[in-house]
Nucleic acid binder design. Sequence first.
DNA 1: CTCACCAATCGAAACGGTTAATCAAGCATA
DNA 2: TATGCTTGATTAACCGTTTCGATTGGTGAG
Lengths: 328, 328
Amino acid sequence: MAERQQRTITINDVARAAGVSKATVSVALSNGTGPGATVRVAPETRLRIHKAAEELGYTKSGLALALSSGRTYTVGLVSQADTVSDDVSTFNAYQKDIMIAVTCACARAGLRMTTILVSTPGTTTAAEIADGRVDGAILATLRDDSLCEDVFKRGFPAVTIGSGYAERRVWPDNRGGMAQAVEHLVSLGHRRILYVGYPDSDVGRWTREERRDGYRDAMLERGLTPRFHGTWAIREVFAESPATRPTACVCFCDAIAVDVIRAARRCGLAVPTDLSIVGFDDGVMAQSADPRLTTVQNPIDAQADHAIALLQSLWRREPAVSPPPVPT
Amino acid sequence: MAERQQRTITINDVARAAGVSKATVSVALSNGTGPGATVRVAPETRLRIHKAAEELGYTKSGLALALSSGRTYTVGLVSQADTVSDDVSTFNAYQKDIMIAVTCACARAGLRMTTILVSTPGTTTAAEIADGRVDGAILATLRDDSLCEDVFKRGFPAVTIGSGYAERRVWPDNRGGMAQAVEHLVSLGHRRILYVGYPDSDVGRWTREERRDGYRDAMLERGLTPRFHGTWAIREVFAESPATRPTACVCFCDAIAVDVIRAARRCGLAVPTDLSIVGFDDGVMAQSADPRLTTVQNPIDAQADHAIALLQSLWRREPAVSPPPVPT
DNA sequence: CTCACCAATCGAAACGGTTAATCAAGCATA
DNA sequence: TATGCTTGATTAACCGTTTCGATTGGTGAG
């Protein structure tokens, strides 16, 4: 026997098998077309078509469908690895949490999701995102604001999440969360509270500023002196005399908190006896830390759902939806 | 001014603007068509076309491109949540690790990836996967072997990863890994080594059997008596007299190992002084455990790369590629 | 008997690209 | 001067759907 050429069977094959035109097949297989529909198909014809489709193992082409309807029911998640090599180990935990959260949110909304990974900033272009294969994008790049800007500039339906460019953005209450953290520590009796953050270039501007300022204002309101430090050389701070050394740290995120705990322990400080630490995000890092990290909850699932809702309202050309979620 | 209707601009618009036919635009913008090509376009025409495209902000439709070329350069990752609700919290850590690993592997290979989440088994059909929007699929469902079977049955290019249906599968050396774990414990002087696994229905058949049998055979080869237990009521085992109580546990995966450690501590056993624990996977759970969990490395990134390579060989209609990766 | 209407179906255009086949010049060669 | 090759561009078909407008018979009203 000659090897049969593997060809996917199309609507034409079904039409031929059922002895009708492809237009009829289309309506028979598509919308249930309730009684009010303009075009109907005779019950027996419909049955014959369904049977033929079944026998042939027909599957509608999602591509053709999307092309002709102009809707893909797919959202693109634009995510960013930490280093040039797209290795799993260089993905930060928060980024992973976002990916999972958005994935689930899409599933809940009945949408597909395709992941677009930008490795080096500048590699991925807005054209790649807005090429029609997705109906909208969720930008979770953390850095690389210029890409976000480009996407928005084309009028492509997009939402940034958790960071970055501010045009259309879903975000946690960074200021409020930081105020909470400070309040928590103050209520425990702390006065010298240090803020530990990333250097300026390593994270989207808005999130960085909001958290930093939230901490600063909360401190000032309570008559305390804010003090800032980067992640580098943090051990120098812990080596200071007990009189000036901070008794607590508020960290930009959980990843930093974990690092700080580690550094503090190396300096002979016990956590939380000698030093209290508060993180931000409450992601997988905080949850699996031992003892469990005190952290400001960053309701990432709610944010993902909200981002999807925003996209959907853009598709409907509605102006906006509800306010952003608030951490507790 | 009237609000201008937002319409995406197509190849026709560029053709009109440049004063040429759309075919010319297509070749001018597509392949560089080296000198050997049948159809060429004059340098000045090419320039004019590029300029027009630039000015209009033209972006090729990925959909139309895929439809006409028959290739999407996208792979589908079929993943499965732990419970009916697609909530992030019900995703198991291993599943998340796989998602990230496959995402990165696709990026490395220059492919897009779309995630197809199957919530309840039976909800997602093979037709949804093989509808032409992806060129191939990586099946990481852990359970729900019947879906895998359906996909393979259609002759759709697919590979299962880390578990499940065995037709075309990328897997770690489960037997060897378990033998290693046993060997490790024996070398530490342990004799009574318990195996802790999931109940039969909770995980794909092949992985379950291979790990269990790998443990059993390794034990028997050393003249030791294998002993099995599920995750339920594990504390009864730890409550036994020190004479019969196991001194070490080999666990099906890291998640179980973490649970077992917790249970052991509740029973007043110190880990690893009174009880040694070995996990399997070396995923995020093991890495963030404190102290770091002893575990068999399951090289998930390599497996993801291998899965992609397998798909690519299927596309080229080549028979097969290299053997599966081995854990260390 | 004719006309209008309705249900069922069909043909063709459209979606936005690629590509094979064709065609009009321009120019060298016989 | 007719022939043939080369270059640059066009026309038309195709990928697999949906959808609009047109075309059939069949039937009830006038």
